[in-house]
Write a protein that binds this DNA or RNA. Structure first.
Length: 303
DNA sequence: CCAGAGGTAAGTAGTGATCA
DNA sequence: TGATCACTACTTACCTCTGG
């Protein structure tokens, strides 16, 4: 961008820019900020002159941000959030009074583990805050944060880029589960018997060769995955109604003994635990409401 | 009075459906 | 397969309004 004097820049252009990033369409951006579509088009022309870049180009699916626009977007969002904080009269977030809505990305596993305690906590401390849970998984969570379709994700998301933040919530280990009257399950479950069983595998992407299979393969071992499902919550019920055995996250099965007559065994090989983290975009670093939510999620995860 | 923001209306471009 | 049409969405020309 060419050198500019801040006094000569209409900072409302940043509001238009931010709306275009959020909506991806000039018409919807205009509706978002209370202008007409041509007014946004005029503003976009001024932004283009300011940046010396097209910023947004037309495509069949709306206005696509150029690399220059994508690069500038997080900083502009952060600037506008800071202005909003200042205009609100100070840095205070009061959960008991807040009517804010948080949009979270969770797998069904993460929702199963975290949501009951999170909901109970909100009922006590922040009764007017609402949650929207969007289904996410290993492969798409970070992209959803980048797009801004969710504000916070929780689960296993290795290798976030530097502008995404992550915080370890807990390390999850594995347990083997079969139905209570399974004819072939004996305690202890040795490796030979384990490998001879028919297995249930959960993969959000439908991949029958998963984390456990990779651990086995490192030792030259292989199990027979008879059924692969994409939802964790299917596992306890499928195991209960079949001869399948599941080797899945311990917290998924922890509440089950009071609901389903399942038997549990420690895995016959050492399966390294995986990291469950919460992750968010750097633009929410200074957001006091977001900070409060992250603290609550951390506390309920480690309780 | 002038510059600039934003509005209206017309023009333009891209896309998908339909039909010969 | 190409022509045509309808629709959607962005751009542009020109106008009004407002503040300095």
């Amino acid at each position: 961008m060419k050198a500019v004097h801040i006094a000569s820049v209409d900072l409302n252009l940043l509001v238009v820019f931010d709306a275009l990033v959020a909506e991806g369409h000039a018409t919807r951006a205009a509706e978002r900020i209370g202008l007409t579509q041509p007014a946004v088009s005029h503003a976009l022309n001024r932004l283009r002159a300011l940046f010396g870049d097209p910023l947004f180009v037309r495509s069949p699916r709306g206005m696509v941000a150029t690399p220059v626009a994508l690069d500038a977007a997080p900083a502009i969002r952060s600037i506008l959030e800071q202005v909003e904080v200042v205009l609100r009269g100070g840095q205070v977030f009061e959960p008991e009074k807040s009517t804010r809505q948080f949009v979270l990305g969770l797998s069904d596993y993460a929702a199963f583990v975290l949501l009951p305690r999170l909901t109970a906590r909100l009922e006590r401390e922040a009764p007017n805050i609402s949650l929207v849970i969007r289904n996410t998984s290993h492969g798409v969570g970070l992209a959803m944060l980048e797009e801004g379709t969710v504000e916070l994700i929780a689960g296993n998301f290795p290798g976030p880029p530097s502008h995404l933040r992550e915080e370890l919530l807990y390390e999850e280990d594995f347990v083997c589960a079969g139905r209570g009257d399974h004819p072939a399950l004996a305690d202890p479950l040795d490796l030979d018997r384990y490998l001879s069983l028919r297995h249930l595998q959960v993969s959000t992407r439908g991949n029958p060769h998963g984390y456990v299979d990779a651990v086995l393969a490192e030792r030259g071992l292989k199990r027979k995955v008879a059924v692969t499902v994409s939802h964790f919550l299917m596992a306890p019920f499928l195991v209960d109604s079949s001869d399948l055995v599941a080797t899945e996250p311990r917290r998924l099965f922890e509440p089950m003994p009071s609901r389903l007559p399942l038997r549990f065994f420690p895995p016959p090989i050492d399966i390294p635990p995986f990291r469950v983290v919460q992750a968010w975009h750097a633009r929410h670093d200074a957001d006091l409401g977001h900070q409060w939510l992250r603290r609550v999620v951390r506390e309920i995860s480690q309780a």
